[in-house]
Design a protein around this nucleic acid. Structure first.
Lengths: 241, 241
DNA sequence: GGCCTTTGTATCAAAGTGTAACAAGCCGCA
DNA sequence: TGCGGCTTGTTACACTTTGATACAAAGGCC
């Protein structure tokens, strides 16, 4: 490990910002603390972070919305701070799309433990690789050659893929084991945002890709739907450069 | 467990000190009760404590400040007693650094529950998400493969599990022989706390899981209800990594 | 046995997911 | 230019999952 991990804290309460700034710095992290969404955007333009700790309740745009936006174009891990057991907001836990959450008030030690756990998990996943670097992907007997864009079964039979199918598969192959939201997948696939609130076209693409992979969508196949979250590629992937 | 947990109560109201001293002692804790900051410092030099219960409002130096000082050099769990009337989020800032808080006036039983919960959390830090290390669980002839999320009977027949069923089962498999309260199960299952006072949806999930496991809920089956406590997974579990 | 609390589960409604079918666009080619 | 084949976005509908509710069954206590 070269340098300390860089953590971005987003909370409108200055007490908490100060507490976390001190505590996390004392434990060997680099910390930037800001109060709201816009300041967060700014901070993220200025520096690269390894993890975000965010309050669910923020003035202006709330944490869920910020988290969703973040997730639409990055893998940055997020830990959400939530109000404890209040009846008002029903959405309290992992439904926020965060990697982990912690109800307020909390002992900073506990936050530290979760930060470590989330970072460890993030690092255990394959690092972002550029598609250009990879010549061949292997997964569960299948092979995908990038040069020819050809998919082969375990028996060596070539399976034709359309352009979108190939792109979608290669996206999944770059993030095996990571839950990708529909927003994220759509952006990676088409380079633009979802338009309609109930756009199902991504699901249809997934369904088509599944047919190519002989994955019936039920049972625990290759591409698994995670209810309310998105899709995961469920097989281990080997890459050949 | 060697000796009883040692709890330090800091409150200027002598009635509360007496009440807590009695109540917590009766429930098996060692209790020291003091009235203010200086007495607290003194007590902490004389003995080692496992948890502090502190009034937010104290004569002289208040609870926030004491808690902050404490945090500067220790992780000792703190439960803060606060005046009622503030909304959860507004108040959350005040207990910055505390592990939990309880609005006054409070039911001693509620405090007891929080003490137990805070102590449990403080002691079992690395328990949150470490399921991924296990490849296979075996219990009473059944097998659960984590990679494919597939459950198999002793005869090798695959039994489909929904997402929630799989998660609930894997929670039980992580704590075989341990009674898990409904609150705890709900939190582990859904990543948030119980909201409704008489929420039976967890029981329904257990019931559905039992159906998958061909456990009729009567007799001494796989998942046993413990009246007034919660549920236990009643079979021995073998883990394969 | 009454009476109350706790647990088990059928049933319902809402939300989420899978995919067939359609339609619009694109491409190459005669 | 017009035609057929392919690709891809959209819509529609069936099906699954899940949380909630209601009520029956079981357990305790007097």
């Amino acid at each position: 490990m070269s340098t300390a991990d860089n953590i971005l804290v987003v909370d409108d309460d200055s007490e908490i910002r100060t507490l976390l700034q001190e505590y996390l710095t004392r434990h060997g992290y680099r910390v930037t603390a800001v109060a709201d969404g816009p300041a967060m955007q700014q901070a993220m333009e200025d520096a690269r972070f390894d993890l975000v700790v965010m309050d669910l309740m923020l003035p202006g745009e709330d944490g869920i919305s910020l988290c969703r936006k973040l997730r639409a174009h990055s893998n940055l891990p997020v830990i959400m701070l939530t109000a404890r057991g209040e009846q008002g907001d029903r959405i309290a836990g992992l439904e926020t799309g965060a990697d982990d959450y912690l109800p307020k008030p909390f002992n900073p030690r506990e936050l530290l433990a979760r930060i470590k756990s989330v970072l460890r998990r993030a690092r255990s996943l394959p690092q972002n690789l550029e598609l250009e670097d990879v010549r061949l992907f292997r997964f569960g007997g299948w092979r995908l050659a990038t040069a020819t864009r050809q998919l082969q079964t375990a028996e060596g039979v070539a399976v034709p893929l359309s352009g979108a199918e190939y792109r979608l598969l290669s996206i999944f192959l770059r993030y095996p084991g990571t839950v990708l939201s529909r927003d994220r997948l759509t952006e990676l696939l088409r380079g633009r945002e979802h338009k309609l609130p109930f756009d199902r076209s991504l699901d249809v693409q997934v369904s088509r890709l599944r047919q190519r992979l002989r994955d019936d969508g039920r049972g625990s196949g290759v591409i698994r739907a995670v209810r309310g979250q998105g899709y995961v590629f469920a097989l281990p992937v080997e890459v050949e450069r």
